[in-house]
Design a protein around this nucleic acid. Sequence first.
DNA 1: CGTTATAATTGAATCAATTTCATATTTTTA
DNA 2: TAAAAATATGAAATTGATTCAATTATAACG
Lengths: 296, 296
Amino acid sequence: MFLEIRHLLSLKTISESRNLSEASESLHLTQSALSHQIKAIENYFDTQIFQRQHKPLQLTAAGRRLVELADSVLPAVADVEYELKQMAAGERGRLHITIECHACFEWLLPALDQYRETWPDIEIDIRLGMSFEPIPALSQGKIDLVITSDRLAAKDIVFEELFNYQAMLAVAPDHPLAKKEYIVAEDLKNETLITYPVERNRLDVFTKFLFPAGIEPAATRQAELTAIILQLVASRRGVAVLPDWVLRETMATNNLTTRPIGASGMFGTLYAAVRKTDRQAAFIEGFINMTREIHG
Amino acid sequence: MFLEIRHLLSLKTISESRNLSEASESLHLTQSALSHQIKAIENYFDTQIFQRQHKPLQLTAAGRRLVELADSVLPAVADVEYELKQMAAGERGRLHITIECHACFEWLLPALDQYRETWPDIEIDIRLGMSFEPIPALSQGKIDLVITSDRLAAKDIVFEELFNYQAMLAVAPDHPLAKKEYIVAEDLKNETLITYPVERNRLDVFTKFLFPAGIEPAATRQAELTAIILQLVASRRGVAVLPDWVLRETMATNNLTTRPIGASGMFGTLYAAVRKTDRQAAFIEGFINMTREIHG
DNA sequence: CGTTATAATTGAATCAATTTCATATTTTTA
DNA sequence: TAAAAATATGAAATTGATTCAATTATAACG
């Protein structure tokens, strides 16, 4: 490859000018530089590009082919350069989010609708993190943001605290447990516990509450969607432990009561994990700030 | 514009290699050069292109966009470079021919069929030269070859002799003039002269034969096609002056007799006019040699 | 977990290429 | 035909890219 973008730009400009001197001005070069440039191209290809000795600098067939190339290449390059600058400014980018907690859909989906308004050029996608470990995937650039409650060690990743939540037991208003001030592990011994379909050791109810007390619920059952879980609870088919933000909004409409887990409550924190290199990107900042505001 | 083809080529190669060193080998550069090149791009756009600190050198979103650009730009550039080299070698080019003499169609069209076989990548076109002066058009690159019998002065144009011809009077075999050894101007005083539809001063019969003798034919009539002229002559609707090569082939089939013009005959030469810069091009040489052989 | 091997970065020096400057040549215009 | 405008050219200067040598980082291995 001999040609460079520079050559194409010069050629294009010359073809749009009446003479070399005029072209050289708009290119911020001397006319001599252009003359040398053309000669170099003509030497390399061993063919004329301009019909010399004619007033309105006329292209030869070879010249026309080059200008044609310039016409297709230059705009493409200019576009990409513009896009890259936008990316660098954080106005454009990819935000592929993985969430580990199913319940997060409840606030994430409406939040993203709002986000899209401020960041129209960010390519958003959400994946449920099951088939792969999210933090390595983040390191490798397969995804761009992980919403998680585990702060794992990884040197090129930062964890930004989004908000705290309290896990609450959701029961039907006429359920016996609705009368208790707070729930202890033994209370669940005779209950059906409804959870999202994930491993037990990824559920706080088990890891932080039932396992330590050595208690096993009477039965467990899984449901994919939060709305289904809430309906099951309302119709007294079981109880569920959910973050307070899910329940706060739906308590009234779904006719539910919530009770704290344990005497001092069960709390957690949600983090946004991002690559250190992305941390300062405007569209990442924007996402973090927005979610903090929503839950502030 | 900051990006150059060089950058795109490096990027593309790196993206297809396992590491910088490997890429640098196929690019015939040191790995240091590549490292500097990448850094320059990253500095300019203020954004990462590769996910560092990971074994299989992984592209960032920005990097992917650049490789995408390279994928579209590099083949286009390579194609044009190849085409230009072909053009320089004369294997590819444009041969837009203008003919001034209508009769030339008779040998030109079959000749071009033959030419196309040897020069498949030459873009051929024929135009009847009426609306413009052919030699300036040639200078300006609007056309590439003029077939003419006038050798006009023009400094960037060369005239290559193709072949000589004799202008002959075509008459029906039982026409009184068929018995004469040769034709004198007065012989046409009582004849209908059939010509191609062009100005008189562009017809040799008038400029070289009738005007000097001050003779006007009894009538003139025009016909576009040589075949029509020949038919008209055969059916004794008039006489016509045509180059010998036209008549040689059709004399037998069309039942015609030919007679020389003047005691010493009327001769002419056909030239191919081309730009000096094109003269050496293989496909121009090819055209000239072919027509010379046909008429040799 | 430290050691070795491999790969990437960095800064300085070198080398190559492009641009400018000054001038000559060519072409156009009056 | 002279003057003006445009282009071409060669040498010097500048810019920019590449290499070299050394350092640092990363992966591989015992």
